[in-house]
C-alpha cells in the first residue's frame, strides 16, 4: 500500500524500513481522536456563535481585563525569567561551585512539581502572614492576592523554559571566539555584551516565548496566590472555569478562542525564530 502511494504522488521517499503505514496510521488516528477532533469542536462552537456575538463576548470588560492580566503578568514573569534564567544558565555552564549538580537538577522542579502544590506552597510563603510575606508586610509590600503574586507564580512555572533553552546553546559556544575578542582588546564586559549575548539572542527569545506561552495558560499555580478578584487579579483561564461552572458555554468558548489564537500566533513566532536562527547560526534553539 505504501509502495503504491509513493509511486502515485511521491508522498514519501522510498525506504527499506518497514512499518510506515502502521506507524503513521497509529499516529494520525491518535492525533485526530485525542487532539484534532476536540480542538475543532472548540473552533466550530466559536464560529457558530457568529461574529457579533463573539465580538460582544470577547470585548466584555471582565473578559478583557482577565486577558490583559493573563498576558501582562505572563509577559512580566517571562522578562524576569529571561534575566535570571540567563544568569542561572551562565553560572551552571561556566562556574564550578559546591552543590552545582543539585541546583542544576532543581531547575526542573517546576516541570515535575504539580502546579497545585506549587500554588499552595507559594501562597504559604508570600501571604501576608506567610514566611516571606510577614517580613514584607511591615514594609507595606503585598505580594500574594495581588497581580504581583500572579507574576511570582509564573516566574516559578516559566524558569526552566528559559534555562533549558539557553543552557545547551551556551555549552556549545566556542571558547576561541572569546579568546579572539580578548586578543583584539575587548574587555570581559564587552566580550559578553557584543560577542556572546548576540549569539544567544535566538535562544533567549525562544525561551522567553516558551515561558510567556506557558504563563498565559497557567492555572493551577496561579489561582491560590492570585486572590481572584474580578477585574483586578482574575486570570483568563479562571474566568473560563467560572463561565463553565455557570454553564455559560458561549462566553467560555469566546475567551478560549481568543487565547488559542494568540497562543498559536506565539507558536508561529517561536518556529520562525528557530528557523531564522538555524539559517543564521547553524543551530536551532
Amino acid at each position: 500500500m505504501t509502495a503504491r502511494t509513493a509511486s502515485l504522488w511521491q508522498f514519501r521517499q522510498p525506504s527499506v524500513i518497514p512499518g510506515f503505514g502502521l506507524a503513521l496510521g497509529v499516529t494520525l488516528s491518535w492525533l485526530i481522536l485525542i487532539i484534532l477532533i476536540p480542538l475543532s469542536g472548540l473552533a466550530w462552537r466559536s464560529s457558530a456563535l457568529g461574529w457579533p456575538t463573539f465580538w460582544a463576548l470577547a470585548t466584555d470588560q471582565r473578559t478583557v481585563n482577565a486577558l490583559r492580566i493573563s498576558f501582562g503578568t505572563a509577559f512580566a514573569a517571562a522578562l524576569v525569567n529571561v534575566v535570571f534564567g540567563v544568569i542561572l544558565a551562565w553560572v551552571l555552564v561556566r562556574y564550578r561551585f559546591p552543590g552545582k549538580r543539585v541546583i542544576d537538577a532543581m531547575v526542573d522542579l517546576p516541570f515535575a512539581l504539580p502546579t497545585a502544590v506549587a500554588g499552595i506552597a507559594l501562597t504559604t510563603l508570600y501571604a501576608p502572614n506567610g514566611w516571606i510575606g510577614s517580613l514584607l508586610a511591615p514594609l507595606g509590600i503585598k505580594i500574594a492576592f495581588t497581580p504581583i503574586g500572579i507574576v511570582f507564580a509564573l516566574i516559578f512555572v516559566g524558569l526552566p523554559f528559559v534555562v533549558r533553552t539557553v543552557q545547551p546553546i551556551m555549552e556549545e559556544i566556542d571558547k576561541e571566539v572569546e579568546e579572539a575578542a580578548a586578543t583584539l582588546g575587548a574587555n570581559r564586559f564587552q566580550t559578553i555584551r557584543r560577542v556572546l549575548l548576540p549569539g544567544l539572542a535566538p535562544a533567549v527569545l525562544t525561551g522567553f516565548a516558551l515561558a510567556f506561552a506557558r504563563g498565559v495558560g497557567e492555572y493551577g499555580s496561579v489561582i491560590f496566590i492570585a486572590g481572584n478578584l474580578p477585574y483586578i487579579s482574575e486570570i483568563a483561564p479562571l474566568l473560563i472555569v467560572i463561565r463553565l461552572e455557570e454553564f455559560n458555554y458561549p462566553a467560555a468558548t469566546a475567551i478560549a478562542a481568543v487565547m488559542l489564537v494568540i497562543s498559536f500566533a506565539m507558536l508561529l513566532i517561536i518556529n520562525t525564530i528557530q528557523a531564522w536562527s538555524r539559517r543564521r547560526y547553524g543551530y536551532g534553539a
Binding site: 499516529t27 492525533l31 487532539i35 484534532l36 477532533i37 476536540p38 480542538l39 469542536g41 472548540l42 462552537r45 502546579t115 506561552a213 498565559v216 495558560g217 497557567e218 492555572y219 493551577g220 483568563a236 483561564p237 479562571l238 473560563i240 472555569v241 463553565l244 458555554y249 467560555a252 468558548t253 478560549a256 487565547m259 488559542l260 497562543s263 498559536f264 506565539m266 507558536l267 518556529n271
Partner: peptide, 22 residues
C-alpha cells in the same frame, strides 16, 4: 511535528474544556 506539540501551547483549562464541549 507541529501538530504533535500542539497540547503544549494550549492552556490546561482549555484542554479540559474541549471535552466538555464534545
Amino acid at each position: 511535528t507541529t501538530l504533535i506539540d500542539l497540547p503544549f501551547s494550549v492552556s490546561p483549562v482549555i484542554s479540559g474544556m474541549v471535552f466538555i464541549l464534545l
